Simulated scan of single mutants.
Amino acid sequence: MVPVRLTGPRLAIREYHHTDGDVDALHALFGDPEVTRHLPFEPHDRETCADQIELYLEEAMAEQRDTYRLAVTRLADAEDPRDATPIGQASLTLGEHGAADLGCVLGREFQGSGHGREVTALLCDLGFGVLGLHRLTARAEAANAAAATVLTGLGFRPEERARQDRLPDGERSGPDHYVLLADAWPGPADRRPAERRPEGEGG
């Protein structure tokens, strides 16, 4: 396994460690109903989070790795980002024909500060620059307008609506799909500075 280590202006993305600290951090994230309300699962207990990290490490060791579920940390939290406590999760799931689906979720206290944009940009660098992918897709729940703002701000374009359901109050439900092609991604050198804007839990 070649460990993933990505660094941005304020954040770093690394592999998970099967330690009490990383398990506690994942539980703080996935055990929070406010964080998981836009995710496709109910809040997890700590034991489930420990099992999840074990799965993440197994995926990382696969001979042909196709799943990257990674810890997001703040550079300010430790001299070495590998020692910092995770504040969120970044994911990249490879599909066929050079495509992959990406996602991002952050703890509630770290939302709304531009972190989601930075994580998503780092995942684009990983997908297009390191892995040589041609197409990235992401989903944002219809109710999570802030996540859609992050994606469109980085050049993703709406592709299709997975469902057209409407809630009793008239709001739409179900995820929107967004797509970004490699030739539309300027890369880290030409990327516009991160903007401070409201953002949601996922990407």
Rank of each mutant, 00 (worst) to 15 (best):
H115S: 14
L102F: 13
L92P: 12
R139T: 07
S113W: 07
L133V: 09
G103V: 02
L94E: 15
E96P: 04
L92Q: 12
G103R: 05
S113F: 11
D101F: 05
F110C: 05
A138W: 04
L133R: 06
G127F: 12
D101A: 00
G107H: 12
L133C: 09
L126C: 11
H97T: 00
G103Q: 08
S91F: 08
C104H: 03
G127T: 09
T120V: 13
G132V: 04
D101G: 05
A140V: 00
H115R: 08
H97Q: 01
G103L: 03
L92I: 06
A138Q: 09
L106W: 12
G116V: 15
H115E: 11
L94T: 07
L126M: 02
L122D: 07
L123Y: 10
G98F: 01
H115K: 02
V105D: 10
R139E: 14
F128A: 01
L106A: 14
A99H: 03
D125N: 02
L123V: 12
A99I: 01
D101S: 07
L136A: 01
G132Q: 09
V119E: 07
G112I: 09
L122S: 00
V130G: 04
L133I: 09
E96S: 04
D125Y: 02
L131A: 11
T137W: 03
R139K: 14
T137N: 00
G132I: 09
G95C: 01
A121P: 02
L106F: 11
E118C: 09
L131G: 03
A140E: 03
F110Y: 15
G127K: 08
G112V: 05
G116W: 15
F110I: 02
L106V: 11
L126N: 04
T93K: 13
H115N: 15
E109D: 15
G127H: 10
R108L: 11
T120K: 12
F128Y: 10
G95A: 02
C104E: 01
G114S: 08
L94Y: 06
F128G: 04
L126H: 15
T120Q: 08
L102K: 04
L136Y: 03
S113Y: 10
A99W: 00
L94G: 06
L94I: 14
A100W: 08
L94F: 08
V130I: 13
R135H: 04
T120I: 09
G107K: 10
A121Y: 05
R135I: 01
E96G: 01
L131N: 07
R139L: 00
E96C: 00
G114T: 04
G132R: 07
V119W: 07
C124H: 05
T137F: 08
E118A: 02
E96T: 08
L126A: 06
L102P: 04
Q111E: 13
A100Y: 11
F128N: 05
R117A: 15
R108E: 14
V105M: 11
L94W: 09
V105K: 02
S113H: 14
G114D: 02
A99P: 00
H97E: 03
H134T: 00
G129C: 07
T93V: 13
G112F: 10
L92D: 13
Q111T: 14
H134V: 01
L106M: 14
R108A: 15
F128C: 01
A100I: 03
V105W: 07
F110H: 15
G103F: 05
H134A: 04
D125K: 01
G114R: 05
G127N: 10
S113M: 08
G103A: 13
D101L: 09
G132Y: 12
T93E: 11
L123M: 11
R135P: 03
R135F: 01
